[in-house]
Amino acid sequence: MGKGIFIIGTDTDVGKTFVTAGIAYKLNESGYKVVPFKPIQSGGILDEHGTNLIAPDIRYIENICSIENKQTSQNHTMMNVYCLKEEVSPHLAANIENIKISKDKIISQYKKLINEYDYVVVEGAGGIVVPLVDNDYFVYDLIKDLDLDVLIVARAGVGTINHTVLTVEFLKSKNIKCKGIMINKYNGKFYEDDNMQTIENITGLSIVDVFSNIEKPTRDNIIKEYKDLSLERILNLFN
C-alpha cells in the first residue's frame, strides 16, 4: 500500500496545482510510482474532441510531468472523479449542473490509487473550508475521511501571515496534522523573507520549500523549479 498527502491552499489560485505537479514531478523523476488525484474540479475544459469535460489541473500535471508516458494506465477518470463546468465553488457548480457528489465514490477511488501507487498527491479545491456538498460536507471533512496529513500552499507576499496562520489554527481545531508549508510566487523581497520567518515562528511549522514567481512561465523554467526541490523533504511529507 502506498502513502498519500493532501495539498490545500490558503486561498484559491495560490498555486496548489503548481505545487502538486512539482511533488509529482520530483517523485516520478526519482523512480517512484506516483499519481496526482483531483477529487473535484470546478472549471472543467473540453477535450481535444470538444465532447468531454476534463480537469485542467490534471492536464497541466500530465503535460509538465510527462507521467502519462511512463504510467500508461493513468487516465482522467481515475485521477479526477468529478469535473464540473462552472468555475465556482464545487457545491454550487454541482447544484447548477444537477450533479450529486458522493464522498463514498471519492474515497473508493482514492483507495484504488493508494493500493496501486507508491504515492498519491491529492489536490483540494480552494481553501480548507470550501463546501463540497452544500453546508454538509467540506474539504476538511474529506481530508479526515481519507485519513491524510496536509501540506499548505501559501503565497510569499503581503497578507500571507494572516491567511496561513488562520489555516493552521483551523486545521488544529479539526485535529488534522499539517506536515509543513510550501511557499509559492516568491520574488526575493525582504518582507517576503520576514513573512516566512514569522509564519514559522508563530505556527512552529517548517517551510518545506520555496517556489519563485515565474512571470513568463515556460515548460523549461517550470521544470527547473521542480528539479531544485528537495527529494528528502518531499519524502518526509509522506512519513
Results as ranks from 00 to 15, higher is better:
203 T>H: 03
115 N>E: 10
170 F>M: 14
238 F>M: 13
72 T>E: 14
71 Q>C: 11
22 G>L: 00
43 G>E: 05
180 G>F: 02
14 V>T: 12
6 F>T: 07
55 A>D: 07
158 V>C: 15
80 N>F: 07
172 K>E: 08
226 Y>T: 04
238 F>D: 04
96 I>Q: 07
79 M>P: 13
78 M>Y: 13
236 N>I: 13
91 H>Q: 02
101 I>N: 07
76 H>G: 12
143 I>R: 02
153 V>I: 13
23 I>R: 10
78 M>I: 15
203 T>R: 10
106 I>T: 11
193 D>G: 03
58 I>W: 09
41 Q>R: 00
74 Q>P: 04
228 D>K: 11
43 G>R: 04
55 A>C: 13
73 S>M: 07
91 H>P: 00
117 Y>R: 05
191 Y>E: 13
66 S>V: 08
36 P>Y: 15
103 K>G: 05
187 N>E: 09
221 N>D: 00
45 I>C: 06
118 D>N: 09
64 I>E: 04
128 I>V: 07
183 I>G: 14
208 V>Q: 08
18 F>W: 12
178 C>S: 12
66 S>F: 05
100 K>Q: 14
214 I>S: 02
202 I>L: 10
122 V>A: 03
46 L>C: 03
33 K>V: 06
224 K>C: 13
1 M>H: 14
96 I>C: 00
200 E>M: 11
94 A>T: 00
213 N>H: 11
86 E>R: 10
212 S>M: 08
195 N>W: 08
123 E>D: 10
166 L>Y: 08
196 M>E: 06
9 G>D: 11
198 T>K: 06
111 K>I: 13
202 I>R: 07
214 I>A: 09
202 I>Y: 08
118 D>E: 12
195 N>F: 05
219 R>F: 07
153 V>R: 07
130 V>I: 10
232 E>K: 15
71 Q>E: 12
190 F>W: 12
236 N>T: 14
97 E>L: 01
75 N>W: 06
102 S>W: 00
55 A>S: 15
45 I>L: 09
40 I>F: 01
54 I>K: 02
29 E>S: 09
62 E>W: 09
204 G>H: 01
10 T>V: 05
5 I>N: 14
28 N>K: 15
199 I>W: 06
88 V>H: 00
